[in-house]
Design a binder for these strands. Structure first.
Lengths: 159, 159
DNA sequence: ATAACCTGGATATTACACATCCAGGATCGC
DNA sequence: GCGATCCTGGATGTGTAATATCCAGGTTAT
């Protein structure tokens, strides 16, 4: 699994704590965790293309959440970074076996493929259950100071 | 996810259909799907180390299931091939952030890490539910001829 | 004794994740 | 208008892990 998933989720969470309507540049989001700015920017672009963030060009530009945290699931973020492919990709080796047919789609026919897909669906379902708002609420209940300290960190940052 | 998982599961299933007590060589198991024999052999060794297969040296040697198909879960096979690592490995970027502590284990503390782990547990639980015997039964009910044709394919194979 | 077969380490080869860079375009403030 | 800021997207480099092969050594059946 892509490391960018971790970066993206943390960045989304941080964006919930900055002043509303305030855009944050990729450079600042990267500085928060000392991440490579150019590469994090790529991930943020992916989030923007997926409709999770909106981006603004020019001075005072940057990224902000495109929707309310309640309407962004963890699965949305993971899918935006990881792409549409499944973790288990069936290579349809049954086609090479005896009795294999050229024109059969073994990704749907093969019992093993189905079994792996079922597990992956359980994974997706679990990730879809949690929203950014849920994560935010959990963090805030455990670490009440986080919203203030995060907001002020971004406010006081000198690049 | 490792392609070897697919090979290993299909090979385990095939082993349920050969005559009991009959060992099958890595070369034969590979020939069934036209897989690279030397590489499949590596995966079979991993299954043997995990106690899923037993291996026998010498003429008439090869691999066979170490336990009854009912006692081998799909998760067992996946874990043997993939290793113990989780798909999402938390890099603990919180440590690099403001207020990060050297001595905190963020893999257990971080809310995002917990969320990803919860999803992965759902995935594992689903894979643990299915056994090789379940897969075998499903295949046999949908394709009744598979046991016979598989057994005879291995019996008639000339290397 | 010999041939069949697994074992485990060494060694390519290849694909992809990770990372950087740059030219181009949008936007703001002056 | 102009320059500074910042996103966009493509090209490119780098490093590591998955893929794949090979071989020397050990075990066992005939």
């Amino acid at each position: 699994m892509n490391e960018g998933v971790e970066w993206a989720l943390h960045s989304c969470l941080n964006l919930t704590w900055v002043d509303d309507g305030q855009a944050v540049t990729a450079a600042k989001l990267a500085a928060f965790y000392e991440l490579p700015a150019a590469y994090l920017n790529k991930q943020l672009q992916a989030l923007a293309r997926a409709g999770i963030l909106t981006s603004t060009s020019g001075p005072r530009g940057g990224f902000r959440l495109a929707r309310r945290p309640e309407d962004i699931t963890v699965m949305d973020v993971v899918a935006a970074i990881e792409g549409p492919e499944e973790a288990f990709r069936c290579e349809e080796i049954l086609r090479q076996g005896p009795g294999g047919h050229e024109d059969v789609d073994y990704r749907t026919t093969c019992v093993i493929s189905q079994s792996m897909r079922r597990a992956e669906l359980a994974w997706r379902r679990e990730l879809s259950r949690q929203t950014i708002a849920d994560l935010k609420a959990t963090v805030e209940s455990r670490f009440p100071y986080t919203p203030d300290s995060t907001r002020s960190w971004f406010a006081n940052l000198r690049t």
